[in-house]
């Protein structure tokens, strides 16, 4: 069963990634990227990494892709000229080199077949939560303050300006 699911998720990831690169319509491209992300999340679940799967869907499929779509809709582009296709051989070559390096690294390193000290009964999400709220609570809370400041920044720098009457008389 897991084997079938793996081939389904893996195959769909590859197929939709090819569509994302090959289709001339930018919106279709972005949408097939969404399919890719969701199927990668499926692969994570098969690996029992449910937390990363959830993060994958929330951050990539949710936040980043919506951002892409917004940007694309602002572009008003009908069809991009296929200028990239002249560089297709170069792209394929570089892709193969990267793939080869990844395969090489994967077989050379000790990552394959290594089993960590994670307590399986606890579950990943719970383990990450425990670490975040005990050992790493200080940087974690700090990150929330950074988000607050970043939110101000977005509003101050890009929000609509409401001109206040200057209270210079005071």
């Amino acid at each position: 069963m897991a084997q079938i699911l793996f081939f389904y998720f893996g195959g769909m990831t590859v197929l939709s990634a090819i569509v994302a690169v090959a289709t001339p319509h930018l919106i279709y491209s972005a949408l097939s990227l969404l399919v890719t992300f969701i199927h990668i999340a499926g692969l994570y679940i098969l690996l029992h990494a449910e937390f990363i799967a959830a993060i994958q869907i929330i951050i990539y499929a949710g936040a980043i892709l919506v951002l892409y779509l917004f940007v694309l809709m602002l572009f008003h582009s009908k069809q991009e000229p296929r200028y990239l296709h002249r560089q297709l051989p170069v792209g394929i070559f570089l892709g193969l080199v990267l793939l080869g390096m990844m395969v090489l690294a994967a077989f050379r390193s000790e990552i394959l077949g290594q089993i960590g000290t994670m307590n399986d009964k606890l579950g990943h999400t719970k383990a990450i939560g425990m670490a975040l709220y005990t050992d790493f609570v200080f940087p974690f809370e700090m990150a929330s303050l950074i988000l607050l400041v970043a939110m101000f920044g977005a509003i101050l720098l890009a929000g609509r300006t409401v001109r206040r009457k200057s209270d210079g008389s005071a």
Binding site: F136, F138, P139, M142, A143, L145, I146, V149
Partner: peptide, 9 residues
């Protein structure tokens, strides 16, 4: 880690 986060903050 807090070096990085506070610096960014």
């Amino acid at each position: 880690l807090s070096l990085f986060i506070t610096l960014e903050f």
